[in-house]
């Protein structure tokens, strides 16, 4: 980064530290914070959409749809997310490539599954083998988003389903009495009221999502924990900046980062809760109490 960093072995003290903290590898580390924040920003709405869909299915009039919705939300109760992450990404990746393969290479005769090997035609590789590394990273990132959204969408579906149930039944009946169609009742009465009930649960979910990001490296995304381990590990003379095992300091830094994220979110979500409950006669007192808590 700096010209003075050309020969690190000559540096000492603060100069050494300044050069050390501005190596390309450290910039990868700083960049991974952006990755994590972007992932959070993309995953949250996606998971919310999954959750909304799941809740609607679970409330459906049709039995098969209801079973799908309930089954989906029940999934997360049983399976630890880490176990799910361990095999789901590979399965999803293979599923996508299998589908692309069916479309692009209908004439392919070799078996796709050969023992443990999974082999689709070269055109069906997603992304293409010769694509730039950026595309591979982006694809990996997208897979991670979908996986996270699927897991957290199931949590969100639980919350939203509960919130929909919590909307006073009399309100819906009143709407019907006014001659609204079921669709109108849903859009004009149920959904707007539901958010107030769902927000405490969803805020919790957001905090949980933040704390689940260290699992990202399981999904092949080089996140902050990956880099903290990588940078903190003992470095021998093969590296420009040899140092002993510094993982403790890197992890302490991550601890502070997560605590700050939690604090910030709590402050903001409390404000949102207060704002949302304004004018909501039913939930206002409740929400105000929670606001103080």
């Amino acid at each position: 980064m700096f010209l003075s960093c050309a020969d690190p072995s000559l540096l000492d003290g603060l100069n050494w530290l300044a050069c050390y903290l501005t190596t390309g590898k450290h910039f990868d580390f700083y960049w991974s914070f952006v990755t994590v924040l972007v992932l959070l920003a993309v995953t949250a709405p996606t998971a919310l959409a999954f959750g909304f869909g799941g809740a609607m299915l679970a409330r459906s009039q049709h039995l098969p749809l209801r079973i799908i919705g309930k089954g989906y939300t029940a999934m997360v109760r049983g399976v630890p997310d880490i176990v799910f992450f361990l095999f789901f990404v590979i399965a999803l990746d293979q599923g996508i490539e299998w589908a692309v393969h069916q479309v692009r290479c209908p004439d392919w005769t070799d078996p796709i599954r050969n023992g443990l090997e999974f082999r689709v035609c070269p055109q069906a590789k997603v992304p293409n083998n010769s694509a730039a590394q950026v595309w591979h990273s982006l694809y990996g990132f997208a897979l991670a988003v979908v996986t996270f959204a699927l897991v957290f969408g199931a949590f969100a579906a639980n919350v939203i389903y509960g919130a929909m149930q919590a909307v006073p039944h009399t309100q819906l009946e009143t709407a019907e009495a006014y001659g609204m169609s079921p669709r109108q009742v849903f859009h004009r009465v149920l959904v707007p009221q539901m958010w107030v009930f769902a927000l405490p649960g969803l805020s919790n979910l957001w905090l949980i999502l933040i704390k689940a990001t260290p699992l990202l490296f399981l999904l092949g995304v080089q996140d902050i924990v990956y880099w903290a381990r990588e940078l903190g590990g003992m470095k021998t003379g093969a590296f420009d900046y040899p140092h002993p095992d510094w993982r403790l300091y890197y992890f302490l830094f991550l601890l502070v980062f997560y605590l700050c994220m939690t604090k910030l979110s709590e402050v903001y979500l409390n404000r949102l809760q207060n704002h949302l409950s304004r004018g909501q006669a039913t939930a206002a007192g409740e929400a105000q109490r929670k606001g103080i808590a």
Binding site: T23, G24, K25, F27, D28, E230, A238, F239, D240, Y241
Partner: peptide, 8 residues
């Protein structure tokens, strides 16, 4: 194999 200080 390792990641050098440039991140490669």
């Amino acid at each position: 194999n390792f990641i050098n200080d440039k991140g490669e």
